[in-house]
């Protein structure tokens, strides 16, 4: 592969799939999975740009991916903990049922 286009297209496709998931699904856990998919799609771009950068000393793309993976893991942990705690309260994982302002 010596062209950047296929990687960017794959990344765009995955990003839009994740976006669709967040828009369509009615379960917070699967919505969170969609967000993770979007983050991963962005990571493909970072790595592809790193690979196609002319300088061999430049690794900021990889460093960004390391940070993105760590932050995504933290986000998943906190988000899923929130999902469980919300389920305990409302007995549901459908975000439409969480309209109350007062717990």
């Amino acid at each position: 592969m010596d062209s950047l286009t296929p990687y960017l297209l794959l990344s765009a496709g995955l990003f839009c799939t994740g976006l669709m998931g967040v828009l369509l699904r009615r379960n917070i856990i699967i919505m969170l999975a969609g967000v993770e998919l979007m983050l991963n799609a962005a990571n493909i771009n970072f790595v592809a740009f790193w690979r196609f950068h002319p300088s061999s000393e430049e690794v900021s793309g990889l460093a960004m991916v390391v940070f993105a993976i760590a932050i995504a893991a933290a986000e998943a942990a906190v988000g899923l903990a929130l999902a469980i705690s919300i389920y305990r309260h409302y007995r549901s994982t459908n975000p439409e049922n969480m309209g109350d302002l007062k717990g």
Binding site: M1, L10, N40, N43, I44, V47, W50, R51, L62, V66
Partner: peptide
């Protein structure tokens, strides 16, 4: 796998 194809071994296995 895409990461590995791009030559980013560390990132691929961390993924």
């Amino acid at each position: 796998l895409v990461f590995l194809q791009l030559g980013a071994e560390f990132i691929g296995f961390s993924q």
